[in-house]
Design a protein around this nucleic acid. Structure first.
Length: 322
DNA sequence: AATAGATGCAACCGCCATTAA
DNA sequence: GTTAATGGCGGTTGCATCTAT
């Protein structure tokens, strides 16, 4: 069935509502209620379609609407509910009295979404971003940091540049570390809960395959390889990395830990599967390995071993992974 | 002060689900 | 069971405002 949209109706007004129109609509609904949106505009003396009137009422004029900035508690609730419900804005709105689905949707798209992306979290899956572009961005971030480090050897170095370099390095490392821990956690949890089914039961698969497949991928340029190698080899000691979590200020790092705490407090599972099939790594991996033939774990561990050996204190990595 | 780009938000569009005839 | 009408929802757009240059 095809229904004519509002705009096709006879000269019905569109666009922003005037205070006079608002008043007419509110007055009419206060007196008669809103039983039939189709007939309401005519009886209310409005040159609008019923749909437009309904939207104006539900999103703006309703007396129980709470306006103003979202509180941190509301933001936390939205993030948690979104991780379970996805883009079901109306469902999410039922848990936030006074907030409309439209308002929540706008808040998500203009605020929360960006925050999560900046924290290295995929706003769709609520999991750390593992896509190649993101990691290469981190790589470039670290390369920049390295460049800054080199400049520090110059007599013309300055405090501000040094601070920037330190922050950039820490941010990139934290995001990388979080990506790794997330993969470990999801694999371990899945294994413990028997969710793996026919999937690869190697809890380190995701961790190991990432650098191994990345470095071996023919789709990467030499510069990409070098940049990615730099990314890993530029990491210093593990306690330094972990220290980033403890010493983080009120900025992005704090948000990361808050997010994790929220995730822990919220016992509801993520809506989107945590399997690796959707990740870029998995797709890349598929170019080299068939799903029916699990990767050669010895090769993988050798690759991982090498990466850890490159660390000045690789035992820290082993401790964490074990 | 002028301008371009970024941002936030209200409103619209189109699709789907539900209900009534 | 079928069709038409309506409501509801999510995605998208357009515009006003803000910010940086």
């Amino acid at each position: 069935m095809v229904r004519s949209p509002c705009s096709y109706d006879n000269n019905l007004k569109k666009g922003p509502w005037t205070p006079e129109e608002d008043e007419k609509l509110v007055d009419h609904i206060n007196k008669h209620g809103y039983g039939n949106w189709k007939t309401l505009p005519k009886s209310a003396g409005l040159n609008r379609c019923g749909k437009s009137c309904r939207l104006r009422w539900t999103n703006y004029l309703r007396p129980d609407i709470k306006r103003g900035k979202f509180s941190q508690e509301e933001e936390r609730i939205i993030i948690n509910l979104h991780s379970v419900l996805g883009n079901k804005w109306s469902k999410i709105a039922t848990h936030l009295p006074g907030r409309t689905d439209n308002e929540i949707k706008n808040f998500w798209n203009t605020n929360i979404r960006k925050k999560l992306l900046q924290m290295g979290i995929d706003p769709t899956t609520h999991k750390p971003r593992t896509d190649l572009n993101h990691l290469l961005n981190l790589s470039q971030l670290l390369s920049t940091a390295q460049f800054g480090n080199n400049l520090m050897n110059n007599p013309l170095d300055n405090i501000a540049l040094g601070r920037l370099q330190t922050d950039t390095t820490q941010l990139a490392k934290i995001q990388l570390l979080q990506n790794l821990l997330e993969v470990i956690n999801s694999s371990t949890l899945a294994n413990n809960n028997g969710f793996l089914g026919t999937q690869n039961v190697n809890p380190f698969e995701g961790v190991v395959m990432a650098p191994a497949s990345l470095i071996s991928s023919s789709s990467l340029t030499t510069n990409d390889h070098q940049a990615f190698s730099n990314l890993w080899s530029s990491s210093k000691s593990m306690d330094e990395l972990l220290g980033c979590f403890e010493e983080q200020d009120q900025g992005v790092n704090n948000n990361v830990s808050n997010y994790n705490i929220q995730q822990d407090q919220n016992t509801l599972p993520p809506l989107v599967s945590a399997t690796h099939e959707t990740s870029s790594f998995r797709k890349m991996e598929g170019e080299h390995l068939t799903s029916s033939s699990p990767p050669d774990s010895s090769t993988i561990f050798e690759a991982w071993e090498k990466l850890m050996d490159d660390e000045t204190s690789g035992s820290y990595w082993k401790d964490i992974l074990e």
